[in-house]
Design a protein around this nucleic acid. Structure first.
Lengths: 218, 218
DNA sequence: CAAATAATAAAACAAACGTTCAATTAATTC
DNA sequence: GAATTAATTGAACGTTTGTTTTATTATTTG
């Protein structure tokens, strides 16, 4: 056999991407074989090489597009002009929403960095650093305008990002907590963590569990 | 050649453990070959099988001992009777000290879980859950005695652990911040995060960067 | 409807993998 | 110092790996 009826390059490539994210997240990049991936897509291993020249190219493509997605999501969500607290709230909301929505891809981007070549690793890390820089800038602004009370903005930024990204480790949609509740809680924890002096109820997310009536609306 | 002069089983096993932690942390479990590990130890691959029957047994041993170490470190550090804030401070201090000290082993225990068999995975996760349960208990006590102000203790415990463990991702000893400074900062962030009402200077760790004179002493 | 192109299968490649086995030498015990 | 035990080597095993090549069929184009 050769070309199969109904075969379509675009659809196959999309199926490969999707299956790869899910398989790598579940098994790990090294543990996933090209034959396994091909079987998941319903195709022979050789067919994968029409879309990605090597296994590492596939991984890199997934990671790069994930980081690009994160960047552009923040660009779209970032408030044009706002006080640091509002900008921080927007950052937290965007970060959590994006990561919950793309749990598997985030897992891949965070766990498989060591399988990239040096050059590609630095490329991904550059994108990640640029994204984190935005948070540091918000924190710095907050300190300068006395909106926040922070020991060290660099350290605080890393702590916040680890805390927020960690949501994908334990959170499962449809279980005890809703996405809205989780987001509201993280928002309130973040605001306290940075010592935000303004009433966090401003961001309609301070006390999500019934202590305030209109809390859940995001 | 066969047995080499000066060869000693205990020393070899210790060398294997050490090299394995470092190699798995750097390359990943799947990416590390037994031959690579043997070369690092200065031995042939077959010699490894005198100490660990399979590659997975090696991984599991490393993980189990890491978790046991974490548990007993906390047992030794846990204050017998103290208010929730003091117990929380002890938990944070112990967690950060332990994880900074054993960065590589923590990396392995957190990242390579998927390479364990189902049975062994649940065994490791049980140990981890037991350790995390201690934190949840502290948080619950704090809420009940009104020492803390927390939305959801389960969620807050996970957020705190992710934040604290994340220190190994970015922190490198000997760079800009000292271990004491980092610990103090995490302590202060934690206390604010849980809404601790007591003056956090009580724990001699509130403002570590020169704003208070006696801050760095832990 | 013929020619060109796109998409795949099938088979094969050398290399690397975890692991086993028999042989061999060092250290220890009697 | 002979017998025993401990520690290791070197070679080999069958699998699996990522990848390449060639042939074949479906689809699109002229």
């Amino acid at each position: 056999m050769a070309r199969t009826t109904g075969s379509d390059g675009e659809k196959t490539e999309a199926a490969v991407r999707e299956a790869a994210v899910s398989l790598i997240a579940r098994l790990g990049y090294e543990a996933m074989s090209m034959r396994q991936l091909a079987a998941e897509v319903g195709v022979q291993a050789a067919a994968l090489y029409r879309y990605f020249p090597t296994k590492e190219d596939l991984l890199f493509t997934l990671m790069r597009e994930h980081m690009e997605g994160l960047s552009s999501a923040w660009e779209a969500a970032r408030p044009a002009t706002a006080d640091p607290a509002r900008r921080l709230a927007a950052y937290v909301r965007n970060h959590i929403a994006f990561h919950i929505e793309r749990r598997h891809a985030t897992h891949v981007s965070n766990m498989e960095l060591r399988s990239l070549s040096h050059e590609r690793l630095t490329q991904i890390l550059r994108m990640r650093t640029a994204y984190e820089k935005e948070l540091r800038a918000i924190l710095r602004d907050g300190v300068e305008t006395s909106a926040f009370d922070i020991d060290d903005t660099g350290l605080t930024a890393m702590a916040l990002i680890q805390m927020m990204t960690g949501v994908i480790v334990w959170f499962r949609p449809g279980e005890r907590l809703s996405i809205a509740e989780v987001t509201a809680s993280y928002l309130s924890m973040t605001m306290r963590l940075v010592g935000a002096r303004i009433d966090t109820n401003t961001y309609s997310a301070a006390r999500p569990f019934g202590r305030a009536k209109d809390a859940v609306a995001l």
